[in-house]
């Protein structure tokens, strides 16, 4: 479960201040989202790719994300050009498939890929606890931060609970097949997972209260900016500034 959210890396990017990475990912994504010029989008894609390569992101983790995204983009390419006016490529009766439409769909696809790359390298490499703390340090609303941290924690509980239950079922000879017994067992297991996770979350709240929790979280580790962080921020700023200049300069 966590591996879908989190990319494990052991390169310099892992040691950069999470706040710097968070802001970088945000700036990059916003810039790419609003960019209209092809050269800016292409350059943005290329630089996001370069950052991924420099951070030595695991290709396997990236692949899963990119495949998911591009299946969607392919669908977009099939559908979107029918609704954009312009020079006709094909037509079925009144419906026209336009070159402008294709261009727009491709632009969205490249933007999307670039943003996913940027998010992967800057944000997915931050572990969830640090991400929550970084958000809190950047003055994100506290409720939102807690919601986020708990969501991640409970996704994990859900995941572990389900692994435990399925293991218990397998230990007593359960092997999934396509028959009624399988469907019945699986649906019962899923029901149990839901109920148990809810129960568990209530007990965890009780455990938090038992230790004096009154709605505030405290951070054990503080962040502090170092030389490498400053270098990182400068590098990203140069990229962002050049891209912004190409777009609006």
């Amino acid at each position: 479960m966590t591996s879908l959210l989190l990319l494990k890396v052991d390169s310099v990017i892992g040691n950069i201040d999470p706040r710097a990475r968070l802001v970088s990912g945000f700036l990059f994504s916003v810039l790419l989202a609003v960019a209209q010029k092809w050269e800016v989008i292409a350059a943005g894609f290329l630089s996001a790719f370069l950052f991924c390569a420099a951070a030595r992101l695991p290709w396997s983790g990236l692949r899963v994300r990119l495949i998911g995204l591009n299946v969607f983009m392919l669908a977009l390419l099939l559908v979107m050009p029918w609704s954009v006016p312009g020079s006709v490529l094909w037509n079925i009766g009144n419906w026209t498939y336009t070159i402008e439409g294709v261009e727009l769909a491709l632009m969205v696809a490249v933007k999307g890929n670039a943003i996913v790359l940027a998010m992967s390298v800057f944000i997915s490499t931050i572990d969830t606890a640090s991400l929550g703390h970084a958000l809190e340090h950047l003055r994100a609303p506290r409720r939102l931060v807690h919601l986020f941290l708990f969501t991640v924690r409970y996704l994990d509980i859900l995941h572990h609970e389900s692994r435990r239950l399925f293991r218990a079922a397998r230990a007593r000879g359960f092997a999934p097949r396509t028959d009624l017994h399988t469907y019945r067992t699986v649906s019962r297991l899923i029901g149990t997972i839901m109920v148990r996770s809810l129960d568990r979350s209530e007990r965890v709240l009780a455990a938090m209260k038992a230790r004096g929790y009154c709605g505030r979280f405290y951070l054990l580790h503080h962040f502090s900016l170092r030389m490498s962080d400053a270098l990182f921020i400068m590098t990203v700023s140069v990229f962002v500034a050049v891209l912004a200049w190409m777009e609006w300069g």
């Binding site: 572990d127 969830t128 606890a129 924690r153 965890v204 455990a207 938090m208 230790r211 004096g212 929790y213 009154c214 505030r216 405290y218 054990l220």
Partner: peptide, 16 residues
Amino acid sequence: FNITVSEDVAFGPFNL
């Protein structure tokens, strides 16, 4: 319920 051991042990004392 915290991710790391030290955070979990620190939780109560911080609440104090």
